[in-house]
């Protein structure tokens, strides 16, 4: 295994590794790079008014979605927050469908009715982007409840931001998940800020993984969220635990977002400094893996450039597709309020 040594903001030694499996490394790099370039394009589309509403970019956190989701089976479930574009892409929702959703078009993965915060895809068991902080954590536990009820061996991954640990729904869901031994991974994407409020200013215990101590049988794990293989290894263990023993885990993945909370705030200068941002940018999860692969001799500059070109083409295709997709017809307004079926 090759590694590229780095030091994180707290001065702790850290390293981004390759997997020692060039094909796997390439797959991870490709997945993360797609999210990165897709989100940059989303930012452009937002500036042009093609994307509206609230829009929260995933840039900087790609190792979390890719690392966790790449360990799942197709019949597992994923549920998350309003910062959901990256997770949808990592789960295999077509970039065209995600971009068309952002554009509010009929070919969007939620038929243009969800928007940035509400990506859904039944085919990949992607149970949504949810817009009320903490509210979806019980939903994730409920999916685990359904799995166990049916005697299945799937798992549910429930992504959430660091601010979620302070809301009641988090406690209620984790308590019942531990009490009833539900096969759920509660994944905290600790990007250090709930909007503009740092974890230290919001959580009385800011070592978030320790929240697991309150729930018997729940593992609490801290993971370097800038290293996709660290995320993958931790995910594999937690998934196995959920699948075979039906036990929940709490994964605190330490990451960072390189953009503002949403499209409406400054990247730095108010609640966090430019220095801090730049320090984290040296740990960029995408480029760290790329560099480690180059050092390991499993990726040439030419191969990287080709990957960039391919991803750029995919993202441009998604944009073109979304741009040409029709708006939902006016008749769609009253569709999907209720279904007219019974069982």
């Amino acid at each position: 295994m090759a590694s590229k040594k780095k030091t994180d903001a707290k001065g702790e030694a850290r390293s981004v590794r390759t997997a020692g499996d060039p094909a796997l490394d390439r797959e991870m790099l490709q997945s993360m790079l797609l999210q990165r370039r897709f989100e940059e394009k989303t930012g452009e589309a937002y500036a042009l008014g093609k994307v509206g509403g609230f829009c929260h970019l995933y840039i900087g956190q790609e190792a979390v979605s890719t690392g966790i989701i790449s360990q799942l089976r197709p019949d597992d479930y994923v549920i998350g927050t309003y910062r959901d574009h990256g997770q949808a892409l990592a789960r295999g929702v077509a970039p065209r469908a995600v971009m068309a959703e952002l554009f509010g078009r009929i070919d969007g993965c939620s038929r243009g009715k969800g928007g940035s915060m509400h990506m859904f895809d039944r085919h990949t068991n992607f149970l949504g982007g949810h817009g009320i902080v903490g509210s979806h954590v019980p939903l994730g536990a409920g999916v685990g409840f359904a799995i166990k009820y049916r005697g299945g061996d799937q798992v549910c991954v429930c992504f959430m931001g660091d601010s979620v640990v302070n809301i009641g729904a988090f406690h209620e869901a984790l308590n019942m998940a531990a009490l009833w031994k539900l096969p759920v991974l509660f994944v905290i994407e600790n990007n250090r800020y709930g909007m503009g409020t740092s974890v230290e200013r919001a959580a009385a215990v800011d070592d978030l993984s320790r929240r697991a101590d309150g729930y018997k049988g729940m593992d609490g794990i801290v993971i370097d969220g800038m290293d996709v293989h660290s995320v993958r290894e931790a995910a594999a263990k937690a998934i196995a635990r959920a699948r075979t023993e039906s036990l929940p885990s709490l994964l605190e993945i330490r990451t960072y977002r390189f953009r503002g909370h949403s499209m409406s705030d400054a990247v730095s200068g108010t609640y966090r400094s430019k220095d801090e941002l730049e320090e984290y940018q040296t740990m960029d999860p995408v480029f760290s893996l790329r560099d480690a692969m180059v050092i390991a001799g499993t990726l040439t500059v030419a191969e990287w450039e080709q990957m960039e070109k391919d991803v750029a083409a995919t993202v441009q295709d998604a944009w073109d597709f979304a741009d040409q997709s029709p708006e939902p017809p006016a008749g769609a307004l009253y569709e999907d309020v209720l279904v007219d079926t019974t069982s």
Partner: peptide, 8 residues
Amino acid sequence: LYMSGGQF
């Protein structure tokens, strides 16, 4: 149901 475009 609505925000998932009729999927869930």
